[in-house]
Nucleic acid binder design. Structure first.
Lengths: 110, 110
DNA sequence: AACATTAATCGCAATTTTACGATTAAGCAA
DNA sequence: TTGCTTAATCGTAAAATTGCGATTAATGTT
């Protein structure tokens, strides 16, 4: 139990789920928004911005990295993070594609 | 812990997270896609379509209902589900708004 | 009333997620 | 080298999620 039966669903459904999952936490949304706001790379002042401990922030960054939404390059003692433009647009398109479907139910119950 | 520190984040960040969370499972994505595909209301044949037990499907439906993305009306012994058009568009807009941000990092590290 | 059908809920187990202190690793500075 | 700074990783605890069998509730059928 507690295991999502991934293999029983279509690849696209799993893709949506994986991408949704990674932004399904306010801290990760905050990280993405912060990186978007900064037009330039920022070098790890995320810990100061977020209301979380350093270890926790690092863990969230790891998840965003795992999906490929952000990348980090070592810059001296600190690490410079930024959004991967290509992946960002891919994730965007996956959501756009899902929500492109119009809701058209004509029954009396809706 | 295991507790998301919701109160420490901005309302919009939590909103994105909540909406993302509800579609962060392939079964719920499948449910939404199925309801979108059916132009009319369907009356609970979701259990036949999904590779999950009735109790599990019911639980996923409950979560989608809790967020307001779907509604169910009792129709005899079965229940007729459909997507809430208004909420669907609100959720869509929340994602559109997030991904409307362009990625513009000019640093050498990106 | 007795029975059948359908979906929600309960109770439980396994797994995953979130969070953080402590430690480690890597690079820079004196 | 020694010390400092920064970020990743480890270990652990608490909570949430996923899944399902069993039960319950509601409605329709005979």
């Amino acid at each position: 139990m507690g295991v999502t039966k991934t293999q029983n669903f279509k690849e696209e459904q799993n893709k949506v789920a994986v991408y949704a999952r990674v932004i399904a936490h306010p801290a990760r949304v905050a990280i993405l928004q912060y990186l978007l706001k900064q037009k330039t790379c920022i070098c790890g002042d995320l810990v100061d911005v977020l209301p979380l401990a350093q270890a926790t922030v690092s863990q969230h960054l790891k998840e965003l990295k795992a999906v490929g939404l952000i990348k980090g390059t070592v810059e001296g003692t600190s690490v410079c993070y930024c959004i991967d433009k290509h992946k960002w647009e891919e994730v965007r398109d996956v959501f756009f594609n899902l929500f492109a479907n119009p809701v058209e139910c004509q029954d009396k119950c809706c």
